[in-house]
Nucleic acid binder design. Sequence first.
DNA 1: CGAGCTGTTGAACTTTGTCAAGGCCCGTGG
DNA 2: CCACGGGCCTTGACAAAGTTCAACAGCTCG
Lengths: 232, 232
Amino acid sequence: MHTEASRVHLLHEQQGPGSRDHKLRKLDTQPTTQRCRRDQEICGQEQPATHLYKVLSGIVRLCIIRVDGRRQIVDLLMPGDVFGFTSSSEYDSSAEAVESDTVVAVYSRRSIEALAETDDHLARTLHQISCETISRLHAQLLIVGRITAREKVGSFLLEMVDRLSAGTNVILPISRYDIADYLGISVETVSRSLTELKHRGLIELSGTRRVKIVDRHALEDGFGGPRFSNAA
Amino acid sequence: MHTEASRVHLLHEQQGPGSRDHKLRKLDTQPTTQRCRRDQEICGQEQPATHLYKVLSGIVRLCIIRVDGRRQIVDLLMPGDVFGFTSSSEYDSSAEAVESDTVVAVYSRRSIEALAETDDHLARTLHQISCETISRLHAQLLIVGRITAREKVGSFLLEMVDRLSAGTNVILPISRYDIADYLGISVETVSRSLTELKHRGLIELSGTRRVKIVDRHALEDGFGGPRFSNAA
DNA sequence: CGAGCTGTTGAACTTTGTCAAGGCCCGTGG
DNA sequence: CCACGGGCCTTGACAAAGTTCAACAGCTCG
């Protein structure tokens, strides 16, 4: 493990575009940061849940490996996002840095809970962060629950634009393989869907990572053939 | 709206099999219950998030209706479960009673947050409940993220057994249509998957709702075998 | 008793996973 | 500097699986 951990004052932390630096300020009393290289594991599935983490820079993915060897990405964390919540004593997923120089703040779960006992504001903040996680997971369920691969990829792109940029351009933070494991489809289908969206004029691609949203409404609506609901 | 709301002491509440009556005890200071009939809306998507709810009996589903009219079920609540968490000022999904005589406890969000300011234990409880929600959503993502419909239906059945019963028998709390919208597949595929699992001897069906798990391990493993198998 | 809802099954069609091959990019080592 | 190797990405062909449309059976309830 080439973990590089050091004690610094998080008040000086640099924030990404989706900055939420007002959150977890109180946790700065025991700040530790960890700088990770690509694919480095930050915490492991079924290991004791001793810490909470906040992404300071870079991207983190939460993964679960199935018995059949398939990998599922159950959350994608960007700067400002917090992870490590679990209702049991162990993490229910592992966390990995997606790119090199990903930096996370590390907080002792025990300390936080102790602090929250006396610090109302911290307790509120914790709750607010939990709610954000719940909303994010609802959004992911909506994306993964769509029917066709084009719809999944399309709404995934919109989610990335909304979370990572202010306009219509976005640089995808993860590989096609990661997208596949996030959406629950195969890499080839991800690739095909992207080129199809491009050919239909809904997006533009520069290189493999840079995407421009051309027709947001068509991406939202699902386009490409009507499909009807089961709703009673 | 045939809402029947009344002030009672929740300390006397009846609990279902997955009882967590130790949770939210402190909220009993302002207890209100609401009894709902089938398909009744408890709170609506994009309406002001003024309350939190706890299921006392029956089943509640959280739904999101897409622009194309399709419905997605983003959570399924059983007795003891709490819903209504959102990071914004509005609910991001609507909540509906699945069956008649579903009873929920209603808590003012404002009051709870005020109480949590001074009550450490309540704050902890809230956080714990949030974490349970997160774990439940991770589990749902794992189910929906599986590849084949048989795998989705199989792991859905296991989830229901684990949450609703102590043994291998379970009475499905929702219809085929609800299962379809929970798993993101069509009703017909749900039906076909169930009959196939039955023919393969992995489950037994009595009527349409009563299910017995015969081969849990095969259901867990995904059972990725081909449709036409000799190993009957 | 009929209307309506739920569930199942069949058949045609569409989409996706899988296997296979090849292109592109970049870092490394000769 | 260039060749090489190994990820990453794309594309094609085919088989498997899912959606859709359609029909029908069972059931409840007015």
